[in-house]
Design a protein around this nucleic acid. Structure first.
Lengths: 146, 146
DNA sequence: TATTGTTATACTCTATAACTATA
DNA sequence: TATAGTTATAGAGTATAACAATA
């Protein structure tokens, strides 16, 4: 069995490299962790949302979201206020510095994305995207059924 | 910016799911970590090799290999002897129980691989494989040049 | 009793480098 | 001085569950 020809292994290596290449932008240059970046991207989709909405817009666990928000709040990028409709909940929003940082990072990571895909034709991108959906569905089936 | 449509994010999620689906076989059922599994797959390619050859056949660091080998040796799956040609080096090989375990696992993970890809035509698989190579090359360029 | 969000804990991974013994 | 491999340590990332406040 040749590990190099084994699809899950190829996929894992590619994902690792792509993740490294992309994360350089927000980690090395702006000291943001991956979770903080994901939370900011979620928050940027609306002027204000509940913590639970952030959960719904990411694949993160509530504990990861809680910690990412705490760090973003310490850094002054995000602010929280109590939800007037539910005493247990918070309303979260990007503060101006957070929004500015987000708007600065987005074009940079999008440029990296385009560079990563630049050798692929439009047709190849379509196949790739469809293949991701199909393989992902099969993977979820395997996980569900042990 | 929609994270769900962002290629590096899609790739990371897919890899995570596929890794989970594949690792179930050797982790849950046989208590092997990913590194141990990779080392066993490398060792199975020859009757005996140096630790440094294991390094060359995987993308692991020497420290990871050292730890994986130590665990495999504790579990009786691998044995080491001093290299008569270099007092610093070791010769490593799978012990019979290790080889038997490897031969038991291989068809199981291959079946999972085939299942994961079962919705893809031969042509789609070719596109996918070529795309991985192209994107991987671009990613390595980005990593190298910051 | 159930839910929102926080905190605690432990385990795995990863990254860096110091260390030993040979070469 | 360099190399093979080990050990130490610290930082992320992940998973589980206990917990306080509120519903």
């Amino acid at each position: 069995m040749d590990l190099d020809q084994f699809f899950p292994y190829q996929l894992a290596r590619l994902a690792e490299q792509v993740s490294l290449a992309t994360a350089q932008v927000y980690q090395t240059r702006f000291a943001l962790g991956r979770d903080e970046w994901r939370v900011m991207a979620a928050l940027a989709q609306a002027s204000e949302m509940k913590t639970s909405d952030v959960l719904g817009r990411t694949t993160m666990e509530k504990m990861q979201v809680s910690r990412a928000l705490a760090k973003l709040e310490r850094d002054g990028l995000v602010e929280r206020s109590p939800d007037p409709e539910d005493g247990r909940a918070y309303l979260v929003r990007l503060r101006p510095p957070g929004l500015a940082l987000y708007r600065k990072i987005v074009p940079m990571v999008q440029a990296r994305e385009e560079y990563l895909l630049s050798d692929l034709s439009e047709a190849e991108r379509k196949v790739l995207s469809a293949a991701f959906a199909k393989v992902g569905e099969r993977a979820r089936q395997l996980i569900r059924h042990g």
